[in-house]
Structures are given as C-alpha cells and as structure tokens.
Nucleic acid binder design. Sequence first.
DNA 1: ATTGCCGGTTTGTCCGACAATCATACGATC
DNA 2: GATCGTATGATTGTCGGACAAACCGGCAAT
Lengths: 244, 244
Amino acid sequence: MSVEFAPLLLEPAYRKVAATIGERILSRALREGERLPSEIELARQFGVNRSTVREALRELESRGLVQRRPGSKLMSVSRPHHATVAAGVSHALLLHDVTVRNVWEALTILEPPLAETAARTRSAADLECIRAAADAFSAQRARAAQAVHSCAEFFRCIGRATHNPVLGLAQEPLLQLLEPSLGVMIDKVPQARARIATAQRRLVEALEAREPELAHQWMARHIRDFRRGYELAGIDLGLRVTSA
Amino acid sequence: MSVEFAPLLLEPAYRKVAATIGERILSRALREGERLPSEIELARQFGVNRSTVREALRELESRGLVQRRPGSKLMSVSRPHHATVAAGVSHALLLHDVTVRNVWEALTILEPPLAETAARTRSAADLECIRAAADAFSAQRARAAQAVHSCAEFFRCIGRATHNPVLGLAQEPLLQLLEPSLGVMIDKVPQARARIATAQRRLVEALEAREPELAHQWMARHIRDFRRGYELAGIDLGLRVTSA
DNA sequence: ATTGCCGGTTTGTCCGACAATCATACGATC
DNA sequence: GATCGTATGATTGTCGGACAAACCGGCAAT
C-alpha cells in the first residue's frame, strides 16, 4: 500500500502565534528594542486566549527573539545573544555524543585561519582586549576554573577581532564544550599553564605586528598543545564531552 | 554611587520547571525516546499548575529537547535536530546584520579543511551520497531553487562524511544563509551551473581517490568561484544576508 | 480481518480570578 | 526644589476549573 496522502499537519494555535510574531521580528517589521504589546492586547489581536499567547511567548523567549529588559514587565524585541545561541548548539552536540576529539578537530580547523584573519582585521581596541585576556590568564595562578575562563576569553576576543559575527559565533560552542575537559587538563598537567601563556604571548605579538601567517602558525601550535596536554593528562580523546 | 547589591533575580516557576527537566535530559537521566509523564502528572510532581507546566514544555520544545512523536500525544525526549539548531543560529546571524561577505569568508575558512578531512574519513556510503547529490545538481537544468538545494545537499553530505558532528553542524547555518543569494546568483550567471558541476565532479574524484590535498584545493576553488559568481551577478557582498 | 462503538486519557484552548510588581502621577515633607 | 510616600492603574505570574477533540485499548458486530 502506497502512501497517497501526506499526513496533514494542523499546527496548534500557540505555534502559529509564535511563528507569526517570529516572522515579524526576522523580517525586521518589529525592530530591536521595540516593546511588544501586553499579553492581553496580543490575545485580543490574534483572537486567542491569553494562555495561548503566553505559550507562544515562551517559545520566542527561548529562541532569544524577545526578552524582558530588567526592571520592565513588557517584553521587548531582542537579537539572540551569542552565548544563548551557542548554548543551544552545545547542548545539541552534547546529546549527539560528540567526543573531545571531535571538538579538538574542529578547533584545529577553525582557529588558525581565525587568528590569521584577526591579524589582518584587528583594531587597536581588539588588541587591547586580547592582551587583557592573556594577562588575566597569566595572572591566574590558583584556580583552574578561572584559568579556563581566561583562556576561553582569549579565543573569544580573537573571534571578535575578525569583525565577522559568523566566525565568532561558530567558535563559541566549541569553547563551551571545551571548558570542562580543559579544566581537568590544566589541573593535571603542571606545565600546561606555561605553554598556554607562551602561545598567547606569541599570538599577541603576531597580532600586534599584523603578521597573519605567524598568527596562523602559533595558533596551530596552541591547539596542537591542547591535544598533547590531553594525552599527558590521560584524558581519552574518544570520551564524550561533558556538560558545562 | 556604586552598585553594592546585584539585582537579585527570582526566576518564575515555568523557567525553573523547564530548567529542571532540561538538566535531566542533558545529564541523560532521561534518555532519548523516553516518554515524559502527562502534563497533569508533571504538574502534580512539581506542585504547580498545568498552565505553568505547559509554558515550560513550550520552552523545551523550542530547544528541541522534547518532541511529540507523530501520532502520539505524550511528549518524548529527543535530541535536537541539526536543522532546527542551525535555524536558530541562522536567525541570530540574520539579526546581527551578517553580510554575504561574512558568510562567504566563513565558508572559505571552513569548507576546504572539511573536504580534506572528508577525503580521509569518508566511507563508501558517504561517497555514494555525495555522488548522488552531485548528480542531482547536474540533472537540474530548470529551477534555481532545486539547484541550490542540491548544491547545499552536496556540502551536507561532505560534512557528514567527516563523521564529526561538530563540523556538520558548524556548516549548516552557513548553507541556510547562503541559499537565497546563491539562488539569485545561479539565475543571473549562466555559466555558474557548469562551473559548480565541474568543481563537484573534481571533488567527487578527489574524495574517491582519498586525496585530501586535492579535495582541499578543489573545494577552495569551488568557494572562490562563488565569490566570482556574486561579482558577475552584481550582488554586493556588503549586503546583509536575507531570510530564507 | 475489517469495521464500528465505548470509555478513559491527554492535549489544546478557553474563562475567570488574584497577588505581586511596575509606571505614573499626585501630594506631603524637608 | 528635591526627595519621599502613597494611590491608582496596568501587567505579569500563577492558579483552578472547564470542555471539545483526538488518541488508545478493548470489545462486539459484520
């Protein structure tokens, strides 16, 4: 028996409401910062109940398309924050059994060209931001958690320095997934901190001198070091990445 | 006046419920496919109203963590689908004023190493899938929309052939953002189809012969061609990408 | 084996309600 | 005049209850 009729899907009202408002936002008919009508008003306009509107708002909220500004009750249109979107990607990858090796491989591919690009496009302010992150890392002698955070921040600053949001957002999930295992690695491998600090220093120099190829090389070495660190720490690269 | 007290945030119940269930899923205490209790039962367990539970479910639903299997009423735990997650990233990038150049630059960085990796890791089935996509593209003589779809599918197959979900998911938003402008380009530049078909053929050959460097080169050329196509079509690379 | 029917369960949607919070305006106090 | 307290209205978060539609399992009828 062949399937003659496609299963007709009747979407529930709350999804239609969410889709309608979502399209308005994506098409920029509703602009960033603009405040949404109250729930009662939305319910009146769509001809549905307030509960239905609320369910739709929860969906838009979780997509980051609307937000409540602190100290305000009305929802306002917002652009999804990078960290939020990246968290969604991280969670998806987590559940898809991504391994430490997978993440490391992606970093290998992504980061060196990213540093290379940053060496061309970075502004003075970018450089300052990157240098600050590197200094913060070197200053952290104690807690691994802080060190890991500074280390990730270093990457983030380089990502921003490319002035390409696509690249910045592409690396964010990797950093989120890397943090837990990186913390373990730094704790177990004494010399890791020094090696990371050195690579960061060289990278700052390369970025300052605007030498793309040098930046590429040092970033590649930086990432390769991570793998060595994992091996020295006895972390199996085939293990699944753990939740942040 | 200094800010002495951080603004204490009291989360509404619906978000706590969503967070609690979400953590269970991410920690794999709730496994994929497992069915959630009914809304009434959840309301009873959390000690809240059913409406509150429903708002929480809408959030989890939009994150792709729960799903209703077709023909079933109860929600079941699910892993976020790649396309869904990528759509979130695409929307975020759209609203962050990403330009065609930004996307193209990211492709330049990402795709050649991806093809290179695929040349090493592809299975026979992967190759067949890639070849099928290439054939589909060559067969499409008429509608640009179909051609664009085949073209994107070609990339997706290569992404899958790396057997690294991180890479596959990283490129998906780029493909989604590329599609609209790519359609315009193919329509306006007559020779584009032939050039794309050639690059795809060479790539298939390189992947079949397991020659990573050749695959890298042809993919780089393939992507460079896109830029040429855009210029020939008179598409300003500084324009924002448009919604799919 | 297919069809039709029945009762129990679950969802989608609605209605109405209330406390807590926020915005604003209006006085009161210093 | 500036600050504070308060009254008022709007809005959200949460609740309880309600009902139609759809699904599920079983059972009877054809």
